[in-house]
């Protein structure tokens, strides 16, 4: 404290002191590197290099000890073209697309309602969306596992209503995977749609109504294009993690609901074959890059791209 004050007093009377922030370019450059280098190195070492490594290891043979052998091979890539792998890839794709579609269908009315609510209700509703957003992912999946359990409440209600027979199984099928994925990703899609709807000027839809548009027309032709950026963000935040899902199909999907993520984990933990796992992961990387690149291009067209955190509160 004292030391600092003395120094600043001294510098106040120093006529040779350089003007603040008009630093010479070399100093500026040095300062930039100083604050950039730590994360830059860390993320290069633990994100960029490992991602590239996946593509390298996909072309290496496995060794019998669960490690990576010497030399190069195309066997892992060839193993991808089997009907079983293709079937899993196809299922991963449709489950993810269906999850995205259902999440959007539910999030658009919810985001709209929150944006149009009075300030008091808006804060309450936002809080209600944010709490599940922060809640342990495993806990939420587990809650559904016990709900859908053969002895669980959902089954009993459906049976009492005569909708399912006594031997119907609600767990361990692709439908259960979609249900739980929608449940987990819904907060992530509501938030960006709400953020876009909140900035939307609702006088535009009113004008459309005044000019004779029916409510649904005004919604589809004025409101939806107006929140386009929020919709794109919502698609990304649900589609990408869906494609990489692992816990949900593992806990509620059963063998009929397995996805690419499960296959990757099986190669790692059951077969202990890292190169095969790497080949599957490489496919997943490419599958994730496609929608990401698409949305980034679309977003660049409309202003700068701030995808996840830019719009979440």
């Amino acid at each position: 404290m004292d030391d600092g004050r003395r120094k600043s007093e001294k510098s106040r009377f120093d006529p040779l002191r350089k003007a603040p922030f008009r630093l010479d370019p070399i100093f500026r450059r040095k300062a930039e590197w100083l604050v950039t280098l730590p994360t830059f190195l860390w993320l290069t070492l633990f994100v960029a290099v490992p991602t590239l490594l996946v593509f390298v290891i996909a072309f290496r043979p496995a060794n019998p000890y669960g490690g990576i052998g010497a030399g190069w091979t195309l066997d892992n890539v060839r193993a991808l073209a089997t009907p079983a792998t293709l079937a899993i890839a196809w299922r991963t794709l449709w489950i993810s697309l269906l999850t995205t579609a259902i999440s959007l269908l539910l999030s658009i009315p919810a985001g709209y309602t929150i944006a149009r609510a009075s300030e008091r209700w808006r804060n309450r509703l936002l809080m209600l969306v944010i709490v599940p957003f922060w809640t342990s992912f495993l806990v939420r999946v587990f809650a559904w596992r016990s709900l859908l359990h053969p002895e669980g409440p959902v089954k009993r209600v459906l049976e009492a209503l005569g909708l399912v027979g006594p031997d119907a199984t609600l767990l361990y099928n692709p439908a259960a995977v979609v249900l739980v994925m929608v449940y987990t990703f819904l907060p992530f899609t509501i938030l960006p749609i709400y953020a876009a709807a909140e900035k939307f000027d609702f006088r535009l839809t009113e004008a459309a109504r005044d000019l004779g548009a029916r409510p649904f027309q005004a919604f589809r032709k004025v409101f939806l294009p107006g929140i386009r950026r929020g919709l794109l963000t919502a698609v990304l935040v649900v589609l990408i993690p869906s494609l990489g899902s692992y816990i949900i199909p593992d806990l509620v999907g059963g063998p009929g609901g397995e996805m690419l993520g499960n296959k990757i984990a099986q190669r790692v933990f059951t077969d202990r074959n890292l190169p095969l796992a790497a080949a599957l992961s490489a496919v997943l990387v490419l599958a994730v890059l496609a929608p990401l690149a698409g949305v980034l291009v679309l977003q660049r067209k409309s202003k700068k791209a701030d995808i996840i955190m830019g719009e979440a509160p």
Binding site: V47, P50, T51, L53, V54, L236, I240, P241, L243, G244, S245, Y246, G261, I264, A265, V268, A277, A278, S281, L284, V285, V288, L292, I307, I308
Partner: peptide
């Protein structure tokens, strides 16, 4: 943006 499983495996 990268799915967790990809980060884990890489």
């Amino acid at each position: 943006v990268v799915p967790e499983i990809l980060m884990g495996i890489s």
